[in-house]
Write a protein that binds this DNA or RNA. Structure first.
Length: 572
RNA sequence: CGGGGAGUAGCGCAGCUUGGUUAGCGCGCCUGCUUUGGGAGCAGGAGGCCGCGGGUUCAAAUCCCGCCUCCCCGACCA
């Protein structure tokens, strides 16, 4: 039993300024968390108990999937990250510093390098594979923009797991198993998530899924098909874009230069020439962080997905070109053409453009456009790839139904890493046939605090938090009213705890109204009230936090309480 | 990093435009009395480098310059 008087962290009537996400407000108001700095939080006793319960569920599911827990360092030698190449590849998001002897150190953002280096020293034979290891540990990422409380912090606890396999086939087996384990974890925490196919990003690798909690506060856009179940992150999602009106059977027509005064947007161009946007090509000017210039060509009726373009050119991020840069490659904004850009920039053409014939494009001259521009004949792309940003209502590539987009929070992800880390760290094993082979890795992460925040976001009402019993800080919240209530509460709490339900006892000398509102704010699943009045009525008033206000309160005799609680929230 | 906003008591805010004695209000906190089933009432009280540094001025929370911190919107992540 924990007494309210022992807790650090009072409940607040008002949310602190700046906390505008509802779940975040409640976590602060109910005394779960306090902010220390940008993206850095203290977890007060209530939140810490929730964290530990979530972690316990993770341990059970990871163990059930065949995992073993270990613990790897938070501070890594910079050398380790130089070997994998990520020391230079990752930007200021990774905190770097030096020790007293000027040796390079970094704060762990993730642990692929450490796992691979452990694998290199510990794994010699195919007989030692497969393996699944995990730990639950602090990470630090100097995120450019933390936000929404625990949804996106710089310091956070992550459960990260790593698989080691002999081959891709083995990886696939573990990957599927972890996928199932993740669904079980989120389910047990009371959070509905959907797995979506995702970009591999900084992890590298061949395939990835993200587990998304759908909510408008999310920062990711998910593309969903309600009829066939297609679900992908917008960064990689595809849509079925129709061929140009008139079909893809057209023959290439000769280039023709036409005057198009002040038609410097697709809209005005279509008006001037009397064509539809799907007959036009538009040019987007971007530059990579290492100063390579990129010219992307997409059809006028679609828009560019920068993440896809960044992947094609192998850049971590892109920025728009400056006016000077555009001029330097010989283009004229509003009348731009990929023709003649040639050596001066990387030309990436969307596959829809590549399929289309006789598009209208700029002439690289103010007030002029070209008719019948065709990829291959008129200009040579460096890459042809899908570059289209999927929009609401476009057709599903699988079944053709209208796609819908939704916002989501990424609470977990799983990656097939392949052998890149094994290669750079020298993690090899001797196969059954005597050949030396690289270990095939996978990695799997869940943000513990973010998961907590998402559950808070999902399970609340206008009076406070409404925790699922599985991860609530306490199963039972006892309001002890008056001296008689307090005198009876101790024995009562013991009888409940005897059957392993944990109890938070409000032993404060507060008026009943204060105790009730605080209990609702804190949100434990079962609320008990013991007082002179309830004892006279034969026991303790009991209700569920999830019940409507006012109703559904019953008197339960003290010796039946444990059973009553167990019947309603199950074992704990 | 770009754009927008904010730093005044533990929390939420006013005061600043138009400088001027002792910097206010609500909640919370302390003491006393009353009260005691839905955030009590009365009385008394504690608590401030007005974000930091510089400048202007007889005088700065208030005007000017610089810096720091935090929040929100864009590109990235568990």
């Amino acid at each position: 039993m924990v007494k309210m008087s022992q807790l650090l962290g009072a409940t607040l009537r008002e949310a602190p300024a700046g906390a505008d996400t509802p779940g975040y407000q409640l976590l602060v108001r109910a005394g779960y968390i306090r902010q220390l700095g940008q993206g850095i939080f203290s977890y007060l006793p209530l939140a810490w108990r929730v964290m530990r319960r979530i972690e316990q569920i993770m341990r059970e599911e990871m163990d059930a999937a065949g995992g073993v827990e270990l613990s790897m360092p938070v501070v890594h030698p910079g050398e380790l990250w130089k070997r994998s190449g990520r020391y230079d590849k990752i930007g200021p998001e990774m905190v770097r510093f030096t020790d007293r002897r000027d040796r390079s150190l970094v704060l762990a953002m993730t642990n692929e390098e450490v796992v691979a280096s452990l694998a290199a020293s510990e794994i010699q034979s195919w007989r030692q594979l497969p393996k699944l290891v995990y730990h639950i540990q602090l990470k630090f990422r100097d995120d450019p923009r933390p936000r929404a409380g625990l949804i996106r912090t710089r310091e956070f606890t992550m459960k990260d797991a790593y698989t080691l396999d002999r081959d891709e086939e083995g990886l696939n087996v573990q990957y599927e198993r972890l996928h199932e384990a993740y669904m079980a974890i989120f389910d047990r925490c009371g959070l509905e998530t959907i797995p979506v196919a995702a970009d591999v990003g900084m992890m590298g690798g061949s395939q990835a899924h993200e587990f998304m909690y759908l909510n408008p506060i999310g920062e990711d856009t998910i593309v969903l098909c309600d009829s066939c179940g297609y679900a992908q992150n917008r960064q990689v999602a595809k849509a079925a874009i129709p061929e140009v009106s008139g079909g893809g059977e057209e023959k290439d027509e000769p280039l023709e230069r036409v005057e198009t005064p002040s038609a410097n947007t697709i809209e005005k161009l279509c008006e001037t020439l009397g064509v539809t946007p799907d007959r036009t090509a538009k040019i987007v000017f971007m530059a990579t962080s290492d100063e390579r210039l990129v010219v992307a060509v997409v059809r006028g009726d679609t828009s560019l997905n920068e993440a896809k373009l960044a992947n094609v050119v192998g850049a971590p991020e892109l920025r728009p070109m400056t006016g000077e840069e555009i001029e330097k490659i010989g283009c004229v904004p509003g009348y731009a053409s990929p023709i003649g850009v040639g050596e001066r920039a990387i030309v990436v053409v969307d596959e829809v453009v590549a399929r289309s014939r006789n598009l209208v494009s700029g002439a690289n001259e103010e007030g002029w456009h070209l008719l019948n521009v065709n990829v291959g004949r008129d200009y040579q792309p460096d890459h042809v790839a899908d570059l289209v940003a999927v929009e609401d209502g476009q057709a599903c590539v699988v079944c053709g139904s209208a796609l819908r987009t939704a916002r989501g929070v990424e609470v977990g992800n799983i990656f097939k890493l392949g052998t890149s880390y094994a290669d750079s760290m020298g993690a090899k094993y001797l196969a059954e046939d005597g050949t030396e082979r690289p270990i095939v890795m996978g990695c799997y992460g869940i943000g513990v605090g973010r998961l907590l925040a998402c559950v808070a976001e999902e399970h609340r009402d206008d009076r406070g938090l409404v925790w699922p019993a599985s991860i609530a800080p306490f199963a039972v919240h006892v309001c002890a009213i008056g001296d008689e209530g307090l005198a009876a509460a101790g024995e009562l709490a013991e009888s409940i705890e005897a059957v392993s339900f944990d109890v938070l006892l409000d032993d404060r000398e507060e008026r009943p109204g204060v105790q009730f509102t605080d209990a609702e704010l804190i949100g434990c699943p079962v609320q008990l009230t013991v007082s002179k009045r309830s004892l006279a009525a034969g026991g303790v008033e009991a209700k569920l936090r999830s019940a409507a206000p006012g109703g559904d309160t019953v008197i339960v005799p003290v010796d039946e309480l444990a059973g009553w609680v167990g019947d309603r929230i199950g074992p704990r």
